[in-house]
Design a protein around this nucleic acid. Sequence first.
DNA 1: CCGCGTTCGCGAACATTGATTGCGAACTAG
DNA 2: CTAGTTCGCAATCAATGTTCGCGAACGCGG
Lengths: 228, 228
Amino acid sequence: MRTAFANGGVMESSELIWLRPEGAGVGRPASRSREEITEVAVRVADRDGLPGVSMRNVAAELGTGAGTLYRYVDNRDDLLDLMADHVAGEFALDNATGDWLDDLVDVGLQAREIHRRHPWLPELTLTRPVTGPNGIEATEYVLAVLADHPASDSEKLVALAMLHAVVASAARAEASTVDMMRSARFIAHVVAQGGHPHLAALNPDPAGGDPLPTALRRILRGLLSGVD
Amino acid sequence: MRTAFANGGVMESSELIWLRPEGAGVGRPASRSREEITEVAVRVADRDGLPGVSMRNVAAELGTGAGTLYRYVDNRDDLLDLMADHVAGEFALDNATGDWLDDLVDVGLQAREIHRRHPWLPELTLTRPVTGPNGIEATEYVLAVLADHPASDSEKLVALAMLHAVVASAARAEASTVDMMRSARFIAHVVAQGGHPHLAALNPDPAGGDPLPTALRRILRGLLSGVD
DNA sequence: CCGCGTTCGCGAACATTGATTGCGAACTAG
DNA sequence: CTAGTTCGCAATCAATGTTCGCGAACGCGG
């Protein structure tokens, strides 16, 4: 798809939305902004879930028609990108203590809190890269925390990607207890039929606390405290 | 939704599809099977991607109408579940060497190969739990590998979940080079504007090999060789 | 061999979705 | 004030998931 501009030029919309200018300097000014639309979309998602974020729904919430949204966004995916990066702005990136492990675990736990506040977020962050302005800011922060760390840049990026994958995945598991229960019922059925001794012998730990903090510590240290 | 049966009973379809019987013993026999439909759906997905897996498309490939599929499946999500578990049958689970770390890394690398063969798979495994018969089989295998390991059951399950999350996430990143390039362009733009020193100072390692095997080793050992 | 109960196949139909288009109104620049 | 441009909006299109009703196919009991 191509968008024509006042200068007669043309912009390939295969770029991320943040690279495309918002509005044009001339002509009738827009009555809404990407920010405003994004906030409304996030509110709708918090209330009705991700499938509730239809162009018609969001537009209605804004008191307008569906077609109007396409003046601000090329397609629905753009809107989803905006939403994901919007909530990435909820990070508090000024807690650095100087201990890289503590700081990275803190980022991971903050990420989980964000995912908990917005149960629709895992589906987005797991399916697409989050590389909007706020996502970039978080990445820069992590790199700053690891600035004095001896690991190579590649290793740091791998650790960052893994941190993200683990947190988002855990958050998704938390978010859909329905799926969990359906799975549990099926597993119980399979176990009841025999033939899966180790699955049958499984029993949950008594009084297991929150596993994520220690898991994150172990993963990050395993990845970055290279004792191969 | 509810499905009536010959005995006058009723079955809640909120169960996973594998808990619901295929066909009914009486009446006109079905001319197709879940297996057959699943195989066709997988083939369509391999060719046209996940959005190509529409009820009409799959039905057409089977030489029938869309409505017919609903005799075998309650909804599209059921079909996706079937597909995900179907390819989970591609695991070779008879390679156990006795060394749990080697064996788990092997499972992870096998999972990546499966994801590579079916580029649509990450979107499924990341979004929903894979707990069909074949998925259960893989879980049982992992538990068998870890049978003599001193870690607690909870720790083992956490490690398994993390293994899955990491592999699927890495596979997704591999699968969509388009997104990667768009992100790269935006990051380059941000860096060019200054203000992100650590991001700017980033340079990729020369001749970096495949990072996943060592990453998996480090993560799994970090999680299961408890040296807190 | 035949009817009966039940299921299956199938096409038409419905609601909803993302996206496009054409036009009049609103706005800025000169 | 005029020219040029963009914006808002409603109508519209194509495609999707899903439901429904009906006639035909089948197995079983007589």
